[in-house]
Design a protein around this nucleic acid. Structure first.
Length: 423
RNA sequence: GGAGAGAUGGCAGAGUGGUCGAAUGCGGUGGUCUUGAAAACCAUUGUACCGCAAGGUACCGGGGGUUCGAAUCCCUCUCUCUCCGCCA
C-alpha cells in the first residue's frame, strides 16, 4: 500500500499516475486525505488529554507519598474526566484510522513512468523476442494429446481424485517435472539465490503482507477451520520471511528462491484457456525473490529478467518479453515483465513468468525496512519473478520438440531426466 | 487430544502497582590507548505516530478490564516449552 505521507505530499501526481490503470482514483484519494487530516487532528487532541492525565496521575502519586491523601482524593474526579475524554478520543481516532487504512488498502501501486497505457493484454508492449517457431509438419499434436499418447499426464485421473485442474503426472512425465524443478533450482543457486522450502499454507497476516488479501481473497483456497490459505505462489511465504524486519544496508541484495506447488482457484476461467496444462488449480513453480535498496531495484529487475531469459534460451524455446500495460498490471506492481513461450501446436503464446518490482508497496504492508546511511529507517523495495512456472513450459516442450514417434528432451535437462527422448 | 509452565529491548536476563521505555551482562556503533590488532576504558545504542520546533503520545506476545496510576492485578486470544496419549 502507498505510504500515507507520500500520498499526502504528492496526491495530484499519484492520481495522474494511477490513470494508467484506467481508473480515476480522485474520489477515494480525496476521501483518504480528508480522513488523514481528521485523524491527525484527533491524535493531537488525544495526546494532549493523555499528557494532562499523566501529569495529574503523577501529582496524585506525589501527594499520596507525602501523606496528603485527602488532597489526592479530591483530584480523582478530574482524573475520571480525563479518562472518559481520552477513551472517547481513542475510539474516534481508531475509527478514523481504520477507515483511512481500509480505503488505502484498495488503492493499487502507481505504475512506473515507462509502463505503457492500455486496457488489456492486447496493449502490452513486446520489448524482446527471440527463437524460431519449429516446423512441426502436418500431424502435430497439442500437448494434451501428446501427454495421453506417451502416458505422461493423466487429467481424468486427477479429476477423479480431486477435480478438474489437478493432473496426475506419470512415468517420464513425472520425471520431467522433477527434472525441471531441479534444473531451475540449480540455475537459481548458481545465480546466488538462497533456497528455502517454505510452508505451503499461510496465515492472514502473510496474505495481507504481499497484497493477496484483502483484494484477491477469492483466488486462494481458504482452509476456514484454521483460517489458513494455500499459497498461490511462493512469493507469499518467501517475501513474508521479511515481514516486520529491519535490515542493514550491507545485507542488500537479499536473494531467495523456492520451489513450491501453487494453488489457485481460477474462478471464472473457461474454454481453450483451461485445456490441458494451460491453466491448472495446482501447479509447480520455482520462484525468485529479491529485497533491494530502492536505488538499485530497477537494475535488479533487469538482472532477474536476464536470469529467466537464460533459462528459456537453455531450454531452446521460442519466447518473447512483454512490458505490461497499465490495465494489465497487477494490483501491487509498479512494473512487470511477462515472459511468454510459443506453443507451436496450439499456435499461441503462453505466459510462463511474470517478473515485477513492487517498490515499497509490499514493503509498507510488510513493514520491511532498512537503516540508511543516516541511520534512519526506510522501506525496502521487493521484487519477484517466476523462474519458472512448470506446466506451460512442459506444454511448449512437448509440442515444440515432437516428431513422428517421440519427443526430444533439451540437452540441459538430460542429466536431470536420465533420458533424452520420450517415445 | 489431556495436564502443567511461560511470553520483557538484537540476545541473555532483572523488574510483581507510582518519573520504568524499562536494571545488569553480552552484542552493535563511535572514541581513547596501540606500529596494527586484542584487551581495557569512555560514550552511545528500540520502534511508530503527532508537531516547524521545543516537546508530546503509544508500545514489555495481541485484545479487553480493574485503578488516580499497570511490564507488574483480572479476563480472553495467540504462540512457545515440558509431561502423557496418538502418529508420518
Amino acid at each position: 500500500m502507498l505510504e500515507i505521507h507520500v500520498l499526502r505530499e504528492n496526491a495530484p501526481e499519484i492520481i495522474e499516475g494511477l490513470k494508467k490503470r484506467n481508473h480515476d482514483f480522485t474520489a477515494p484519494i480525496n476521501e483518504i486525505l480528508e480522513l488523514d487530516e481528521k485523524r491527525r487532528a484527533c491524535q493531537q487532541k488525544m495526546d494532549q488529554v493523555l499528557a494532562e492525565s499523566n501529569a495529574l496521575s503523577r501529582d496524585i502519586g506525589d501527594l499520596f507519598k507525602r501523606g496528603k491523601a485527602e488532597e489526592a482524593n479530591a483530584m480523582r474526579a478530574k482524573s475520571a474526566e480525563y479518562k472518559e475524554e481520552s477513551h472517547r478520543l481513542k475510539e474516534e481516532f481508531q475509527e478514523l484510522d481504520n477507515r483511512m487504512n481500509e480505503a488505502l488498502h484498495h488503492v493499487p501501486n502507481v505504475p512506473n513512468t515507462i509502463v505503457p497505457a492500455g486496457n488489456s493484454d492486447k496493449d502490452n508492449e513486446v520489448v524482446h523476442s527471440e527463437g524460431e517457431t519449429p516446423n512441426l509438419g502436418e500431424n502435430n499434436l497439442p500437448h494434451w494429446e501428446l501427454a495421453d499418447k506417451y502416458d505422461l499426464i493423466d487429467f481424468d485421473l486427477g479429476a477423479k481424485i480431486t477435480g478438474a485442474g489437478f493432473p496426475v503426472y506419470k512415468g517420464k512425465g513425472a520425471k520431467l517435472q522433477r527434472a525441471l524443478i531441479n534444473f531451475f533450482l540449480d540455475e537459481a543457486d548458481k545465480a546466488g539465490y538462497n533456497e528455502v522450502i517454505p510452508p505451503h499454507m499461510v496465515n492472514e497476516e502473510s496474505g495481507f503482507g504481499t497484497g493477496q488479501l484483502p483484494d484477491k481473497e477469492g483466488q486462494m483456497y481458504h482452509a476456514t477451520v484454521d483460517n489458513l490459505y494455500l499459497i498461490p505462489t511462493a512469493e507469499v511465504p518467501v517475501t513474508n520471511i521479511f515481514r516486520d524486519v529491519i535490515l542493514e544496508s550491507k545485507q542488500f541484495p537479499i536473494k531467495m528462491c523456492a520451489y513450491t506447488p501453487c494453488f489457485r482457484r481460477e474462478a471464472g476461467s473457461y474454454g481453450k484457456d483451461v485445456r490441458g496444462l494451460n491453466r491448472l488449480h495446482q501447479f509447480d513453480k520455482v520462484e525468485i525473490v529479491q529485497i533491494q535498496h530502492p536505488d538499485q531495484s530497477y537494475d535488479t529487475l533487469t538482472t532477474m529478467v536476464d536470469h529467466v531469459k537464460g533459462l528459456l534460451q537453455k531450454l531452446g524455446l521460442q519466447f518473447r518479453i512483454l512490458r505490461l500495460c497499465g490495465g494489465d498490471l497487477g494490483f501491487t506492481s509498479a512494473l512487470t515483465y511477462d515472459m511468454e513461450v510459443f506453443s507451436a501446436a496450439q499456435e499461441r503464446w503462453l505466459e510462463v513468468s511474470s517478473i515485477s518490482n513492487f517498490e515499497t508497496f509490499q514493503a509498507n504492508r510488510l513493514k520491511c525496512r532498512f537503516r540508511d546511511e543516516n541511520g534512519k529507517t526506510r522501506l525496502v523495495h521487493t521484487l519477484n519473478g517466476s523462474a519458472l512456472a512448470l506446466p506451460r513450459i512442459v506444454a511448449a516442450l512437448l509440442e515444440n520438440n515432437q516428431d513422428a514417434d517421440g519427443i526430444r528432451i533439451p540437452e540441459c535437462l538430460h542429466k536431470y531426466t536420465g533420458f533424452e527422448r520420450i517415445d
